[in-house]
Nucleic acid binder design. Structure first.
Length: 511
RNA sequence: GCCGAUGUAGCUCAGGUGGUUAGAGCGAGGGAUUCAUAAACCCUAGGUCGGCGGUUCGACUCCGCCCAUCGGCACCA
């Protein structure tokens, strides 16, 4: 089954920070999990490079917008490498392949009558070259917040998208697809706003030029948001039917899972589906809008200067390793409706209690006993696994169900639960005592074989989260990673006699 | 201002069509033990379940009001 996982494309006017890292890491864990199951995954990320902000930043720096975009896009790509992310493509909105297709789609919207030329009238700040909404203008007492000069009433011709005409169709779609927007709290927000009624939205601007020219009326450029949304299908070549890209990738639409931050929900949950409806393209499967990281109880903001930035993140890599970072992102992050607090102490505690004490320690004690009592050779199990094959199968089922729902915490818990059960089993059966009694050797063999095999299976389930460390575990257990999940989690993968190395995966660290 | 949510142990959160001693994980304190990364294991939380009022034999669970926090309110990438 094809599966298409996307991050938002990141605005090149920003520097990479924890927000970008988080979304991309979540998608990466998910993509790896799906690939592990043998699904045909296409994982996309990229950069959004047009718009007035980029134009202005570039002018301030005395470079062309393209040069600025090139530089910052390269930085985002470098970061992906540092994070070990496994995206299958990286799309940039200034690439010809994207621009051409966006023009094709916009032309189609125009031809279909879904886009029309209209007049916009509003409160305009001449100094800032910006329009304000009525509410905002009133708040500002109809004066520019920067210059203090009165706002003027200005009109502008823009092309509009007939969002309003999709009201009914959207309502029906949401009713028929209750899981389309996740989590439920976000869906309710969308439904609430939808009830207030939809207005048409402008899809072009004329007050700057750094954008894709509107086909047939080139003093207009396509508004960045519209430009950006189309990346999800231009990357698949849907705007060039029959083209090389489409031949290879069209199969991934509509199996799309858009993972986004909650700040851009409206565009993805309403405008994007409406655009697709207008183009008569099928809807993506799901929009998952996660929440935000806050830092030490404080909202992160540019003005506060308290973003967890790249140097900070790289500090965590240096101390705890990349896998520990992924673990913290995936299991402690704001994937549901409320924000998560990023705290150094919490990071350390999570590392110690999950990774050192369980994921590290459990394989360590099992491999140590096998080394001590059997010279490292996997003992034979005369009990054919006892209850463990059933337990493992249940954990795998739980893991699969969680992955289906992008429930990374649930998937992690399914795997961790197995290791905790192994710990409890060792506590209960006391193999280290049986080892002193030659009459109970057979029992000892079974216990340790069952432990080792369960550790192996739990390790497979943890691979999407901890790819580097679970690769170490595989080496210690003399396994390879070629086969699909169902085969790899089948009971009995560790043959008797296989020499298992002692392993210590996560070193204990000082806070 | 409008719409919507949340407020339960130090922290993060479960929970209940109202009914004896309100739960988990983590942290903290204590214990016992050694196969292991002083790890796994056992014991310990006296938290007015945000406040006030109402309904009720009885509310943390229902209703009202209030307070606090958070999210959304469209041209913002």
């Amino acid at each position: 089954m094809p599966a298409y996982i996307t991050t938002p494309i990141y605005y090149v006017n920003d520097r990479p920070h924890i927000g970008h890292a988080y979304t991309t890491t979540v998608c990466d864990v998910w993509a790896r999990a799906m690939r592990l199951r043998g699904e045909d995954v296409f994982f996309l990320t990229g950069t959004d490079e047009h718009g007035v902000k980029v134009e202005k930043s570039a002018a301030a720096k005395g470079v062309t917008p393209q040069a600025l975009a090139d530089e910052n896009a390269a930085e985002f790509q470098r970061v992906l490498k540092v994070f070990g992310l496994t995206n299958d493509d990286f799309i940039r909105t200034t690439e010809p392949r994207h621009e051409k297709q966006v023009q094709y789609f916009v032309k189609r919207l125009l031809d279909a009558g879904s886009v029309y030329l209209g007049t916009f009238e509003g409160w305009y700040d001449e100094g800032q070259e910006e329009y304000y909404t009525e509410t905002r203008a009133k708040e500002l007492d109809y004066k520019s917040p920067i210059s203090g000069r009165p706002l003027t009433r200005a009109t502008e011709q823009n092309y509009y998208f007939k969002l309003s005409s999709f009201q009914k169709q959207l309502e029906d779609f949401f009713a028929a697809n209750p899981d389309f927007v996740q989590p439920a709290a976000r869906r309710n927000e969308v439904l609430g706003r939808l009830r207030d009624g939809l207005q048409d939205v402008p899809v072009t601007r004329t007050n700057f030029t750094w954008g894709i020219p509107f086909p047939g009326d080139e003093k207009h450029v396509i508004y960045v948001w519209i430009d950006a949304l189309f990346n999800y299908i231009t990357a698949l070549g849907l705007g060039e039917p029959g083209g090389a890209l489409a031949t290879e990738r069209a199969k991934y639409w509509p199996a799309a899972y858009h993972v986004i931050g909650k700040e851009i929900l409206w565009f993805h949950a309403v405008i994007w589906p409406a655009l697709l409806m207008a183009l008569e393209l099928p809807m993506p499967r799901r929009i998952h809008a996660h929440s935000f990281w806050i830092a030490d109880g404080q909202k992160m903001s540019k003005s506060m200067g308290n973003f967890v930035d790249l140097p900070t993140i790289e500090g965590y890599f240096a101390k705890y390793g990349l896998d520990a970072w992924r673990w913290y992102m995936a299991t402690q992050g704001p994937l549901q409706a409320s924000d998560s607090d990023f705290r150094a102490q919490h990071f350390h505690e999570t590392y110690t209690s999950d990774l050192v004490n369980v994921v590290g320690n459990c394989p360590s004690r099992v491999t140590a006993m096998i080394n001590k009592y059997f010279e490292g050779k996997m003992p034979a199990d005369s009990q054919a696994g006892g209850e463990w094959p059933t337990k493992c199968a249940a954990a795998v089922a739980q893991w699969n169900a969680a992955i289906d729902e992008l429930d990374l915490v649930g998937a992690a818990q399914a795997a961790m639960g197995l290791l905790r059960e192994v710990d409890a089993f060792i506590h209960r059966t006391e193999p280290f005592k049986l080892a002193k009694d030659p009459a109970r050797a057979e029992e000892l063999c079974s216990i340790l074989a069952q432990c080792a095999e369960t550790v192996r299976i739990a390790g497979v389930l943890l691979e999407p989260f901890l790819p580097a460390k679970m690769a170490e575990l595989r080496v210690a257990l003399k396994q390879d990673d070629g086969a699909p999940l169902s085969k790899r989690v089948a009971w009995g993968g560790l043959a008797a006699g296989t020499v298992l190395d002692k392993c210590a995966l996560f070193p204990r660290l000082e806070a």
